[in-house]
Design a binder for these strands. Structure first.
Lengths: 332, 332
DNA sequence: TTTAGCACTCACTGATAGAGAGTGCTAACA
DNA sequence: TGTTAGCACTCTCTATCAGTGAGTGCTAAA
């Protein structure tokens, strides 16, 4: 693979990324100044196809990069591309300023990434390991209602509004809570069992038990990794997915957050964090690429941000953007 | 509009709902036993078209119901259709059992509705009016961190994890909270201003101020109506939307939760809560129908559940399902 | 009033031809 | 020996056209 072949390959990749049309030898000769004639380029293209970097949709069409071609291109980009300062400023403007809490921040990130790239963005919130009970508390409200809330040792809070049953006073509830706090403090959430507990009270307090179950479920869910999508419908803009069947396959994957989660995880464990076409584990996404970056909140909890787009993706720009954003939110 | 015309119209509507193909006179004569010949039906069809209940895609095609035709059909269904007992059981199985808290419950509802109908479901969570501060509290965690949480008088909770600044002890924080609780108890959230407050302390506590702002924003957001979608991609299954341009228009609307919210609200204020085709305010949805039902949590807070599908929707079934589900979740 | 018959309309299908883009090969050239 | 011009060839794409079939509207008979 000599220098000129590289140039030809890169020209084709770049042109195809821009136009989504198979690229012919004449186009290359005209548009990129390689100083050789179309015929020469044709010869190089034939070689590149033989080597597996290019493909031909049909005999008399131009060439299209193969997954391998994109891979070569991406690996060759090397030294992290820089974001334009205009875009960097945009990121700072939208994600900087007043920090608005983890959840809102991550949603804003997902939205921003999808707008800037015109692809679909995926944000995975950081997960905690085996949360423990830190505090259970009731707070009275009007109309015989009360909030019950539960805090984990990671500071995650779940809450539930409860109508206080007839046979119970608010003070009774408070007493129960005090007992639970005493008994179960710092106990792993998955080992809490409230069902048998309320037998200690004179009467069973069904409403309360149910609220407890609900709280635990809720808390565990919040503790676990969540998936936030941005611009899921951006795929509709890509010409390669104007076929409804393909669209459906991809959107169905995006609806299944479990799948998305695993996908991003495998992509992230990749050293380079870029999965191109068939490299990624889901058949449905064999015409898509996924780029993933990792961020850290407070130096501890790690999550991921990804961009999902067609294999014909603007790799340098997306890589630059993701690495910038992940650094930015890690620092703030 | 005599009895036979009604029968012809209904047959066409039903057939078209099932097949999505323009319906011809012969088909009606064969498939529905009206006791008259195709020629007669043709005459009736011509009349119905003149009256605006039917449309013809082109001269030599069968007839398709117009919005007005669907409207007539829907109004004529009258006395609420009943859900099959099998489906009712399914609803009970998935939404009954242990009540798992409002949020999870509503998400489960959205999912269930979309699966049962194969259309897109929209769930609007109930809104509260002008929430007030009920309680602010800090809870210490390990590693110099603490949870700050804020509870509104409606029992909605927002929380934020805070790293306690060097120049502050946990007790300082607790004291600040005590002061705020004393000073601002039962004050409407939108009138809280913490920025000037911390000037009272010896040093400005920026981290704390920011956490407060974040909490308020978060709380207000949670208090407001939220939109939960189920099966947004089900639209892809409808033959009338195999055109990507139409799809994009609809999915874009669904991505804008503000729009969806207004849409459901206008639909719900409709007495019958059914918007057919051009009846509904968004141009993009002029080939869709929306059916909305209202539910109440705890007898107070009202929210909505809707189904969005093509105008060619299985109205009776969807109406039955929605009214059953809304009753079910209102009672539980 | 209903129905049978019939001419007419129009989308859809498949075949065919021509245009255009692009290739691969050969032979000439530097 | 590498590069280039020329040319035949391939294949898709588009337009055109005839044939088919579903369905209609009208007319006249029952």
């Amino acid at each position: 693979m000599d220098e000129r072949k590289r140039q030809v390959l890169f020209s084709i990749v770049r042109d195809y990324i821009q136009t989504a049309e198979p690229v012919g030898s004449r186009t290359i000769a005209r548009r990129y100044d390689l100083g050789v004639s179309p015929a020469t380029i044709r010869n190089e293209m034939a070689d590149l196809e033989e080597l597996g970097y290019l493909e031909q949709p049909h005999t008399s069409a131009g060439r299209v990069p193969s997954d391998r071609g994109y891979r070569f291109y991406v690996d060759a980009i090397g030294g992290l591309p820089e974001l334009t300062s205009a875009e960097a400023a945009l990121v700072k403007k939208h994600l900087g300023g007043k920090l608005r809490g983890q959840e809102l921040m991550l949603e804003a990130t997902a939205r921003l990434l999808s707008i800037l790239t015109n692809y679909t963005s995926i944000v995975i919130t950081p997960a905690q390991a085996r949360p423990k009970l830190r505090l259970l508390q009731v707070i009275p409200l009007a109309d015989h209602r009360a909030v019950v809330m539960m805090v984990s040792d990671n500071g995650v809070v779940a809450n539930e509004v409860l109508t206080i049953p007839e046979n119970l006073s608010f003070d009774d509830l408070a007493e129960i809570c005090a007992y639970i706090n005493y008994q179960y403090n710092n106990v792993s959430l998955d080992r809490l069992q409230f069902a048998d507990f309320s037998g200690r009270m004179s009467a069973r307090i069904e409403a309360f038990e149910r609220a407890m179950d609900s709280l635990i479920a809720n808390l565990e869910r919040r503790e676990s990794d969540r998936v936030v999508l941005g611009g899921a419908t951006n795929i509709l803009n890509q010409p390669e997915f104007k076929d409804v069947a393909k669209l459906r396959a991809i959107l169905r994957v995006l609806e299944e957050h479990d799948l998305v989660f695993k996908l991003v995880r495998t992509s992230a464990s990749n050293p380079a964090s870029i999965s191109i076409g068939a490299e990624n584990p889901l058949e449905e996404l064999k015409e898509c690429s996924i780029i993933t970056a990792t961020y850290r909140f407070g130096g501890l909890k790690t999550g991921h941000i990804s961009i999902l787009g067609p294999t014909r993706m603007e790799y340098p720009r997306v890589i630059a953007l993701l690495s910038f954003v992940s650094r930015f939110i890690s620092e703030s």
